[in-house]
């Protein structure tokens, strides 16, 4: 029966064609998904590129931007060539921060290589403000990484009322010291080599 044969042939070809279309559609979807994933990964990598400061700075954040932000909070800042020093006095408590420029790169004036943040004459009621003060500086390198920022904040919360400690978080070294002579607590953060 020629008619039935032709119908069968057409059905068979149609079935194979459908399979090819389905495979093509799945392939296209996978191509697009993989493309989106590749774009996101590469874009994130590119965005975090720190070649401009030799991987020795707080990435993507200029020292002038940080100084302006502190001045906006009423802190008094002074440019001391290699360092920007900012200070705020509240009662007898002094909040001091020294922002060190990256010294061994051509554009060393632009970015922060080290931070020293001090609280002088802290009182029994200063702990909360002191923790927020130091946490802000400590999490600058990890501002886009909430889990790491939380880890650093947790370490600070433990140490700020203690005697001090050293820790390392993602290539950054954090040191908290309590100076009895000067009645101060000091946080030093710098790149770990």
């Amino acid at each position: 029966m020629p008619y039935s044969l032709f119908v069968t042939v057409e059905l068979t070809q149609s079935g194979r064609g459908s399979r090819h279309v389905v495979v093509g559609v799945i392939g296209l979807v996978l191509f697009l998904l993989a493309g989106a994933g590749g774009f996101a990964v590469a874009s994130g990598y590119r965005g975090q590129d720190t070649k401009y400061c030799g991987h020795e700075c707080v990435p993507g954040l200029k020292i002038g931007t940080v100084v302006e932000a502190l001045q906006g909070q009423g802190h008094t800042c002074a440019d001391k060539r290699q360092i920007w020093s900012c200070e705020l006095k509240i009662g007898k408590v002094r909040f001091e921060a020294d922002l060190f420029r990256v010294a061994n790169v051509t554009d060393f004036y632009e970015y922060i290589g080290k931070v020293e943040a001090r609280i002088v004459n802290p009182d029994s009621t200063t702990a909360a403000a002191g923790l927020d003060y130091m946490s802000w500086f400590a999490t600058l390198p990890h501002r886009d990484d909430p889990s790491t920022a939380k880890k650093v904040g947790g370490w600070l919360a433990e140490q700020i009322t203690g005697d001090g400690d050293v820790t390392y978080v993602l290539d950054w070294e954090y040191t908290l010291e309590r100076e009895q002579n000067t009645r101060s607590v000091e946080l030093t953060m710098k790149r770990r080599y």
Binding site: L30, F31, L32, L33, A34, G35, A36, G37, G38, F39, A40, V41, A42, S43, Y45, R46, G47, Q48, D49, T50, K51, Y52, P59, G60, L61, K62, T65, R143
Partner: peptide
Amino acid sequence: GGVAGAAVGLATTEPVTDD
């Protein structure tokens, strides 16, 4: 897809230098 997306990502994204 992965290679093409990564290439586009690298070509169109600038490093964040002034956040």
